[in-house]
Write a protein that binds this DNA or RNA. Structure first.
Ligand code: SF4
Ligand code: SF4
Lengths: 162, 162
DNA sequence: TGTTTTGCGGATATTCTATATCCTTAATTC
DNA sequence: GAATTAAGGATATAGAATATCCGCAAAACA
């Protein structure tokens, strides 16, 4: 059970987009270059963010992506689910139905305890992600990233933002 | 990000083993038949449980598996990690190192906030699983499974337990 | 003793997903 | 009209999950 690397990409891209001045866009090309990622494939992750209405896009030169709402109104789960999907990590294949002792026509009233417990853990994972806002991430990064790197990255981005 | 089906298999098998009388063993063949699973492949899951010291095994006719310790001393996380591995679901590929603005020789003091937050969610998932004991599962199942099915399954298992 | 049954591990095949690239189309800027 | 961009479809590659098969050693039993 491993998250796809697009999750990491999307989170980092959103953190960068959160630092954009109002109304500016940043292109896939710039985001790929900044993170050393394959442009074409990163584009798929950004499209997922777009389909989830987390980012706005515009075409043409000076086009690209920006956040669709403020960083305090986007949480980690929004981003993770956008690229990873909303499906639960535990899938129930209903093997209890194969029990040879089952009376004919037996019908389970509800999902069995195994599935419910696994789903509860899944929900705990989601809850944690839901509680962290994108703005929280930016706050932490701004404290932890060395000021010179933070500033030069900011300038690098601005130079390329349309 | 999806758990392998072996996780479900292992959980159900452990629930069955928890109902075995002291000192008896149940074979892969019986467990596979009871759950309608491919015997050879289920065997891999059971081997994982064995390597994790969750079950004891014995060879020969009347051989098979039994719990290595009481059901109250085994929790869901033990079983899940035995077959799924202990690796965290979010893997950090350190893409921040690709930032072209990075000064030469820049060395990050610690994992970045993105990774730490994702790992925190992962830990919440594990915590939930850690808190549920195998004996808890058996308790719930014994209440929810229809008594006649519960009993006939029990008899079916006993007939095959060595 | 020898035959059967069992778990164990290695090797291998198959199926599915994640990863990655390419190409066309339509919108936007200049 | 030319250049640039996101969107989305098609396709190729790599790797993981799923599944089967085989040989081995231990245990049970006749
Ligand atoms: S988890 Fe429970 S409900 Fe889901 S397949 Fe297994 S037995 Fe059936
Ligand atoms: S999550 Fe943070 S530490 Fe991990 S790879 Fe991405 S940037 Fe680097």
């Amino acid at each position: 059970m491993i998250l796809k690397s697009q999750v990491e990409w999307a989170l980092h891209c959103c953190a960068i987009l959160a630092g954009l001045p109002e109304g500016r866009y940043l292109s896939t090309k710039a985001l790929a270059e900044l993170h050393g990622l394959p442009k074409e494939y990163l584009s798929k992750a950004l499209q997922s963010l777009s389909q989830a209405s987390l980012v706005d896009t515009t075409l043409g030169p000076s086009g690209g992506y920006r956040l669709a709402r403020s960083a305090s109104e986007i949480n980690f789960l929004d981003i993770v689910e956008a690229v990873e999907g909303k499906a639960r990590s535990f899938t129930c294949t209903n093997i209890r139905e194969n029990n040879p002792c089952r009376p004919a026509g037996y019908c389970d009233s509800k999902p069995c305890a195994v599935a419910r417990i696994m789903w509860e853990a899944d929900e705990a994972w989601r809850d944690t992600l839901r509680r962290v806002r994108l703005s929280d991430l930016v706050g932490i990064l701004s404290e932890e990233v060395r000021p010179d790197l933070w500033q030069s990255t900011f300038e690098w981005v601005l130079k390329r933002a349309g």
